[in-house]
Design a protein around this nucleic acid. Sequence first.
DNA 1: TACGAATTCAAACAAACGTTTGATTGAATT
DNA 2: AATTCAATCAAACGTTTGTTTGAATTCGTA
Lengths: 219, 219
Amino acid sequence: MKPFDTHTKLLDVAEKLFAKNGFKGTSLRVITQEAGVNLAAVNYHFGSKERLIREVFRRRVGPVNQRRLEKLDRIEEKANIEGRNPELREILDAFIEPPIQLMNHPSGKAIMRLFSRLIIESKKEIAELFIDQFAEVVERFLQAFHRALPQFSQSELSWKMHFMIGAMAHAMAEPFRLKFLSQGLCDPSDVQATITRLIDFCQAGFLAPVSNPDSAEEA
Amino acid sequence: MKPFDTHTKLLDVAEKLFAKNGFKGTSLRVITQEAGVNLAAVNYHFGSKERLIREVFRRRVGPVNQRRLEKLDRIEEKANIEGRNPELREILDAFIEPPIQLMNHPSGKAIMRLFSRLIIESKKEIAELFIDQFAEVVERFLQAFHRALPQFSQSELSWKMHFMIGAMAHAMAEPFRLKFLSQGLCDPSDVQATITRLIDFCQAGFLAPVSNPDSAEEA
DNA sequence: TACGAATTCAAACAAACGTTTGATTGAATT
DNA sequence: AATTCAATCAAACGTTTGTTTGAATTCGTA
């Protein structure tokens, strides 16, 4: 296995360009050119452009969700031993920290934008990949939230999780937007600051009582 | 002015298709075909595809931001008369309600997805349009937040606003994601429920104290 | 060294893209 | 009735797209 074989080189370059210009906006020609390989390499190694897209995702999403579940495992184990429920803040950290931590990765910025594109992209095949990769995570964390906040129904917690995912995705995908908002005051590349503030914000959001219990669905 | 002249028909159809498949993913051929007009109509009426995109945005974003500012005006006026500062919840409502209210519009779903695409899209020209349309809104609301929450610095409020925008954009663009999260329990098309819950969540987030004041930037 | 499989390569493919053209229409103006 | 001009149309433009092909090359292994 060469240090920079064509296969991984393609994944790396595609990841960067997909993040920057989207999928339709990135042609196989610029990918292969920037990677310094032949145009036909994509179809040889991956079969098609769409399968390349899926591979780019799978390589990054899997490990992050794995880390989320590992952290949640450890939290629940520890809480179990101490005979208590996991604390909300611990659960939030397990959900938020692993993806944001990608900022420290060499291609962190691209990976994070890619993550948000995965959340946002509407294409059927991508949406299916999303469900595959996140079904277990969603289930486990909703469960954890419900134990930490038994006063809220499953559906209310889904709303809160919905908002949290949005805040995360936006913070990950559009760091420069924060620069614009704050007129240069804030530094979106500060990993720990981003994580801490996200958790602060979402923790309060999760704890917030719901105004109108009338239109609440069941759980 | 015919009831369905080519110009508005193109804007309507383009809006719908851009929202569903993105800009690169939507060809002029499918737009004109679905609109029942000639392929050349886009270049005749708008000059180019890119200018069509900009027109599609301008038509929707302008009025919403105008409503936001009107609501903020009224809130500040009323508070001024009563000799107090506007309340956080009022400000949040002025920022959140107008765009979410679009769900009641006939093409509400498309418009909302379009809004989020505007926030997310990285293309230079779109980003500039974003800044043009939002500069005043951002400035006015940051100011208002600062008066309502003087304990937080400008930069801390920017972080919070950053997260709020993410939660909004996600809730607007990906309502079906909430269906998935809640396994069908929640109804993302309930306008008032979405607004109320968003405000609840963000209100708490704004009020939340910041954990680590060390890495805080200045204001 | 020689063989077979894996990989890379230039070249070409059909299809789809945004855009332009020049003729044609149809309603308003003179 | 003649003129004008905005609007629409079919057709074609030159690129760019993802994909395929078949020969050339490289590599691991015997």
